[in-house]
Design a protein around this nucleic acid. Structure first.
Lengths: 198, 198
DNA sequence: TCCCCTTTATGACTCAAATCATAAAAACAA
DNA sequence: TTGTTTTTATGATTTGAGTCATAAAGGGGA
């Protein structure tokens, strides 16, 4: 389910962009002029260190919106948005988006819930990084991802590479690879064809 | 300036609690039933590790509200709130607070800005922790604190203990103490009577 | 099918922050 | 003023994740 339905978005000046994998929608430091929502595809919000390391601030999929904080609170984007796959992105100009919020209390409240959920995620990651060892961090991250996925009685297949897990939890790939391997040996998760199941 | 003015709060069922230093307003895991705003005093939101380490998710002062995410998005508090000084806390019951938001678009938007600013802070801390060494982390944290304080041509006195800085940036006190001392020797900040100025 | 690029994998080594211990200084309360 | 707690300070030691190097496996495109 998307935050803003397409017909509503169109009434408020919404338009659709077609992007290819690895396209950049906005860069760190840009000012925010649009509300963005994924119609099809996936996007990562990332920050880069001066020596090129990447930290994934968030991953977004069909129906998700992203990049609202700079829009709502008027600061520069703290990260860049990069498509992970070919994508169609719905965007609404800033002024019209504020009109939309004013006219639609339910959407406004839904947006709040999304921001709050994102804060919850960041609280979790921050606690994990500052308290615990790699295994604990990975378990918590995987459990979070599982909890966000549609409920199922099947094992949850983690849809991320070890590099992505590392970039989300502040560790190096090698550490993630080694830790996950040890966790499999201890029966804490399963690996099939290098894919992680929990 | 507070988010919700007192007369507005009172019209929506607001009441004031008097708390003493180190009182706990809510615990991690509690469900959220009130909107809270500081009338006087200061509060920290913290999470604890299983072995008692503390991570400070946020510090709040006069006029600030806190603990809204669990209220808006209906999840359990991810941390506990503890008063740092004797405090007077204004609270508004959940249902009435939603009414207040519905009736006051400007307040609703202001709340969004606060949530967004908080996300920005967490993005910053996360990038710092995962990319950089203690000195860089401390500089960024101190600069952030300075940028939030009222502008002045005087040096900014950091109103936090080294332990608090450590608990906000995922390091140990000893590391913060040593790093700050080295930074002073390198002329990157000043220390007077053990107080930090930047 | 072959080639290239990404991802996973593993061993050896380094090093910086955590940990542990201890104490001085400062802040606070009685 | 004294006694107690908190905060700052510093040295010695440990350790575990980062780094570096190298390679195998897998996936996608031409």
């Amino acid at each position: 389910m998307s935050v803003v339905k397409k017909d509503v978005a169109l009434r408020y000046g919404g338009s659709v962009l077609s992007l290819r994998k690895d396209d950049i929608l906005f860069h760190e430091g840009d000012s925010a002029n649009f509300f963005y929502q994924i119609e099809k595809g996936s996007v990562k919000m990332v920050t880069y260190s001066v020596d090129g390391k990447e930290f994934i601030q968030g991953l977004f999929y069909q129906g998700d919106c992203f990049g609202e904080p700079p829009l709502l609170a008027a600061f520069a984007y703290p990260g860049s948005s990069v498509t992970l796959t070919d994508s169609k992105i719905l965007r609404i100009p800033k002024d019209r988006f504020f009109d939309l919020l004013k006219d639609n209390f339910d959407i406004h409240l839904q947006l709040d819930r999304i921001l709050c959920e994102r804060l919850r995620y960041k609280n979790m990651i921050l606690s994990e990084i500052s308290f615990y060892d790699p295994e604990h961090r990975i378990i918590s991250l995987l459990n979070y991802l599982k909890s966000k996925a549609p409920a199922s009685d099947q094992l949850f297949q983690v849809p991320l590479t070890r590099q992505q897990l590392a970039d989300m939890s502040g560790m190096r790939v090698e550490t993630v690879i080694r830790t996950i391997k040890r966790m499999e040996e201890a029966g804490k998760l399963q690996i099939q064809d290098h894919k992680i199941f929990i």
